[in-house]
Write a protein that binds this DNA or RNA. Sequence first.
DNA 1: TTCCTTGCAAATCGTTTGCATAATG
DNA 2: CATTATGCAAACGATTTGCAAGGAA
Lengths: 139, 139
Amino acid sequence: MALKHSAQRDKIMAFLMGRKDHPTADVVYMNVRKEYPNISLGTVYRNLTLLANMGEIMRLRVGDGVDHFDADTSPHYHFVCTECGSVIDLEMENIDTIQDIAGAGFDGKIAGHVTYFYGICGDCSKESASGQKPETALQ
Amino acid sequence: MALKHSAQRDKIMAFLMGRKDHPTADVVYMNVRKEYPNISLGTVYRNLTLLANMGEIMRLRVGDGVDHFDADTSPHYHFVCTECGSVIDLEMENIDTIQDIAGAGFDGKIAGHVTYFYGICGDCSKESASGQKPETALQ
DNA sequence: TTCCTTGCAAATCGTTTGCATAATG
DNA sequence: CATTATGCAAACGATTTGCAAGGAA
């Protein structure tokens, strides 16, 4: 139960904190492995799950079938590009009122919500205007 | 390309329309099999995916790692009980303004959003008040 | 020395797919 | 007859887990 220190976990956490995008377990693995060649995918998954359960990081299920991870645990929203699949932080005003709206007339207790916005990101808008054709990442 | 009629697909669709909850592929399989003993899980998945792609039904990814399906394709929101895992329809006023809020200051184009509300459903609130202890369904 | 953590590989789980056969139009 | 759909089983991809060995407190 008592958590012990681990160099692998530190590297994973450090890597995640240095990224503004939202890497998948595999991306974390590929990158941490550069500095820590012996680390295993299992260890990456174990630590990501551990960190997420402790609330140190967030697990994002954006709908592409793969979990993404975010070291920024402050409340914020994400945009997912249906063209390139990138997951982007949104800076927007608080919309917590939607919970009150949802709770009106509902007999359970609403404790939270998860919202993902979808569409075409700025980069893909430009590209498609120039005739390119990236592939969709969403299932 | 041209769709042909299939008794299995009809049964799947009929079953889904007769449910107010939001069954998983396996639940659909188990139930349709009662009337159609030879149907295979693969056929259920194939048809659910087909129907979802045609827009006849909706695929819900509520975060428990399993896809749920909903024959009600009208715009509405869902509540997921973190206690029992049940997925419940919410009747609430439109919150599409959150897309405008999200889009302000974002350089991409927001085309849609997915929102799930979490908490304790009415039934579980009563149960926990009486000292019971159901298990969590969310990962 | 206790027991948490790792690496490795095998296992699991939900879902998809290839193929030969059956059903539809 | 041309094609789509099915059943079955094998294949998949992401994630989890058992186990023996390694490392932290």
